[in-house]
C-alpha cells in the first residue's frame, strides 16, 4: 500500500511538472533580442497580443485574401524557407501568373525600415494592401476581403478578441498581420549561439567569418546583416530600375535593397529577380561577374578593379560561415508555421 501511494505521489509530481512546462509555453509577445538595435516598427499603437498574433497568423495563411481563394501570404512566404519562396526565382500568384521579383524572407520585420526590394513602402502596416490587390498576386479588392471575413463568425470573434469590438476593418486586418510578422524574430542561429558562448565555429567557419567581415560586411553589416541601403550590386541590367522608380532619382536606378543574410542558406534563389540559385553562383558573381553599369556601388569598383576578389577556397569558407546564419528553431517553430 505504501508503495502504491508512493507511485501515486510520483505520478502527481510528474503531472504538476507537465503543467508547469505548459505554463512556460504561454505567449510572451514581442521581445527584442538584447543585442539587436531598437525596432523601427512603432508598437505604441499596435502592441502584440496573443489574440492579435493569432488573428494575424490566421489571416497570413488564409487563401480567402485572394480573389479565388487559392493564394495566401503563406503561399509565397513559407516557414521552412524563412518565409521566402524556396526554389522560385519569381512567384506564381493567382491563375499561375508570374510576379516580377523574388519573394523575400519575412523575418525580423520589426527592424525593417522599408519594404519591397525597392523600399516603396515605409511602414509595415501599409504593406499588406499590396499583395492582396496586386493583379499578379492575390488580385482581390479590400472590400471583398472584408466582406468575406465579416461573414465568418470565427473571424468576427477573433477581431473582437484582438481589438475589443467586433468591427472587422481593413486597418485592423493590416495591424493583425503586422503583429504576426513582427513576431517572426530569428536570432538563434549557430552564429548567435557562438556570440552568446553556447557554440563555437569550426576552423573553416571562422576563416569564413574573417573573410566575410573583410569583404561583405560593409553592406551586410551588423547583427541584422544589412545596412538597409539600396545599391546596384553589379547585376546585368533589366528593365526593372528598382529604387529609382520610387525616388525618381537616376542615381538610384537599378538599386535594390541590401537584404539581410540571416537564414540565407534557406532562401534560395537569390537577388531581387531570383537569378542565382546557389550561394556559389552569388559569390561567383561578386568575384567575377560584376558589370560596370552607371550606378554600380563604389565598393564594387575599388582600385580600378570590378567586384570582390575571392579565391575558390575563400568562397567555400564564406559559404560555410553563411550556413551558420541558419536558425532551425525559427524555421521549424510551430508557433509560426501553417
Amino acid at each position: 500500500m505504501k508503495k502504491y501511494s508512493y507511485i501515486l505521489f510520483l505520478f502527481f509530481v510528474l503531472l504538476a511538472a507537465c503543467k508547469k512546462e505548459e505554463k512556460k509555453a504561454t505567449f510572451e509577445g514581442f521581445k527584442a533580442p538584447s543585442n539587436f538595435p531598437t525596432p523601427t516598427y512603432d508598437f505604441s499603437g499596435n502592441p502584440v497580443t496573443e489574440a492579435g498574433f493569432t488573428l494575424g497568423k490566421k489571416l497570413f495563411y488564409d487563401g480567402r485574401l485572394s480573389r479565388d481563394g487559392t493564394v495566401s501570404c503563406g503561399t509565397c512566404h513559407i516557414s521552412f524557407s524563412a518565409f521566402s519562396h524556396f526554389g522560385h526565382s519569381v512567384s506564381h500568384g493567382i491563375d499561375g501568373k508570374l510576379g516580377s521579383r523574388n519573394a523575400p524572407a519575412v523575418q525580423n520585420m520589426a527592424w525593417e525600415p522599408f519594404f519591397f526590394w525597392d523600399g516603396g513602402v515605409f511602414n509595415l502596416d501599409l504593406f499588406s494592401i499590396n499583395p492582396i490587390q496586386n493583379h499578379l498576386e492575390m488580385d482581390e479588392t479590400i472590400p471583398n476581403v472584408i466582406a468575406k471575413l465579416k461573414a465568418d463568425a470565427e473571424y468576427v470573434k477573433q477581431f473582437k478578441a484582438a481589438f475589443g469590438t467586433e468591427d472587422v476593418t481593413a486597418t485592423r486586418m493590416y495591424l493583425a498581420l503586422s503583429q504576426f510578422m513582427c513576431m517572426l524574430v530569428t536570432n538563434n542561429s549557430k552564429y548567435d549561439q557562438v556570440l552568446n558562448g553556447t557554440a563555437s565555429f569550426t576552423t573553416q567557419e571562422n576563416a569564413g567569418k574573417q573573410l566575410f567581415e573583410q569583404k561583405c560586411a560593409s553592406c551586410h553589416s551588423g547583427i541584422l546583416f544589412t545596412d538597409h541601403a539600396f545599391k546596384n550590386n553589379g547585376l546585368s541590367l533589366t528593365n526593372d530600375i528598382g529604387r529609382g522608380r520610387i525616388t525618381l532619382n537616376t542615381n538610384d536606378d537599378h538599386c535594390f535593397k541590401v537584404p539581410s543574410l540571416r537564414n540565407i542558406a534557406k532562401t534560395t534563389p537569390y537577388m531581387h529577380d531570383g537569378r542565382f540559385s546557389t550561394l556559389e553562383q552569388v559569390l561567383n558573381h561578386y568575384a567575377s561577374g560584376v558589370q560596370n553599369t552607371p550606378t554600380l556601388d563604389t565598393l564594387l569598383k575599388q582600385n580600378g578593379q570590378l567586384g570582390i576578389p575571392l579565391t575558390n577556397d575563400e568562397k567555400a569558407n564564406i559559404i560555410l560561415f553563411l550556413n551558420t546564419l541558419t536558425d532551425e528553431t525559427f524555421i521549424k517553430n510551430p508557433l509560426f508555421a501553417e
Binding site: 519591397f116 516603396g120 513602402v121 515605409f122 511602414n123 501599409l126 494592401i129 499590396n130 490587390q133 479590400i142 472590400p143 472584408i146 476593418t169 481593413a170 486597418t171 522608380r245 520610387i246
Partner: peptide, 14 residues
Amino acid sequence: PSAGAADMYWGWNS
C-alpha cells in the same frame, strides 16, 4: 487607403 482613398492611393509607393 482601403476605402475613401482607394482610388487615390499608391500602395506600392506609399
